[in-house]
Design a protein around this nucleic acid. Sequence first.
DNA 1: TCGTCTATTGGACGCTTGCGCAATATCGTC
DNA 2: GACGATATTGCGCAAGCGTCCAATAGACGA
Lengths: 198, 198
Amino acid sequence: MTPDQRREAIVDATLAVAIEKGLASTTVRDVAAAMGTSSGLIHHYFESMDEVLAAAFEQVARQDLALSERLMGEAGSPTSAMAVFFRTYTPVDKDWSFQLWLDAWAEAARRPAIRVVSARLNLAWQDLLERTIRAGVGAGEFRSDDPTAAAWRILSLLDGLALQVVAHGTTIDRDDVLRWAVRAAEEELGLSVGVLAG
Amino acid sequence: MTPDQRREAIVDATLAVAIEKGLASTTVRDVAAAMGTSSGLIHHYFESMDEVLAAAFEQVARQDLALSERLMGEAGSPTSAMAVFFRTYTPVDKDWSFQLWLDAWAEAARRPAIRVVSARLNLAWQDLLERTIRAGVGAGEFRSDDPTAAAWRILSLLDGLALQVVAHGTTIDRDDVLRWAVRAAEEELGLSVGVLAG
DNA sequence: TCGTCTATTGGACGCTTGCGCAATATCGTC
DNA sequence: GACGATATTGCGCAAGCGTCCAATAGACGA
């Protein structure tokens, strides 16, 4: 294995563990066991465990963003791009990804490395939404007098609702999140009810 | 010190530590040191550290809720109660309180005691909002075909936006949060622009 | 004054953590 | 085939954690 491959393997293994145990309780030994190697190897490629965790979080967050960005780009119109956004942002089988976001937000205030990554990626999501909204307004599909605010509102409402599902699991369920967020977005963008659903 | 006073002292000390170090990395020894007592004493009053942390978080969250509930109750109408809600939910000088919410949401998945408290208090906030909305609809001040969903949307949008300020500090600022959330709520409840502001 | 009950101490226990380090395996190069 | 570089091992270290417990201190009623 080349150094680059090995670094990648470490990040992948870290991710696999973090999915099950959470970012905060992922240990060097866990990662080593997941790779089938020794724990010392990880410190041969990374200065500290914090850097490993930050790299893992960044990878997952960037992959999710890249996937949504690609699928939204392939959509035929801003309206269907927005529908794709809702489907890809709230996948049923990826609670662990959102749990990583919760961990990151909580840790951001105290860990500069995490704050930088988290802020950059949140901004990137908002930017993706804002560009889509502006395109929709330009194409006459959406109506919005403040695309910046609209993008933040759509994103933050989804975050706030999804948070309830992932953190508590009992307050509201996944269907509520998607239904309520989609409905708010339709209102926000001047669309008729049901256009963004399904 | 009576048992009640001691319990209270433990919770207070835990809070003081948690505000600085975060809920997740507050240890028994930290709390004992903050009180100037031994660590064993804490386990004489609490079954586990999880319960201490949950009690500390609950104290802050219940105080905030009680304050909002009281002030909203003193408001003359559902509309002004809703305006009071926005002013009390986003206080300038209490970032640390919202930071504890972030900690709690992230830890909820791993610590049952925290999950229970966090879920209960989130539900209580939603319930407070839902009751206000229903009162407003009954009084002919609001328009809403689903007060439950409306309450969750208003609360979650505010959480999602506030999260950006507290976690990152750079993406958006406090004024944006209040302005955007208020605007969305006015839309949600069929109010004219500016009614909930100031 | 004595006895009892409880608050409080302070350290031991077992476990886990990130990290460092000497020893070993592996592999490309001459 | 030998050698040097480096990838990899596996264990040890010191520190930290929550929890538990025997011992002590102190207050209060009999």
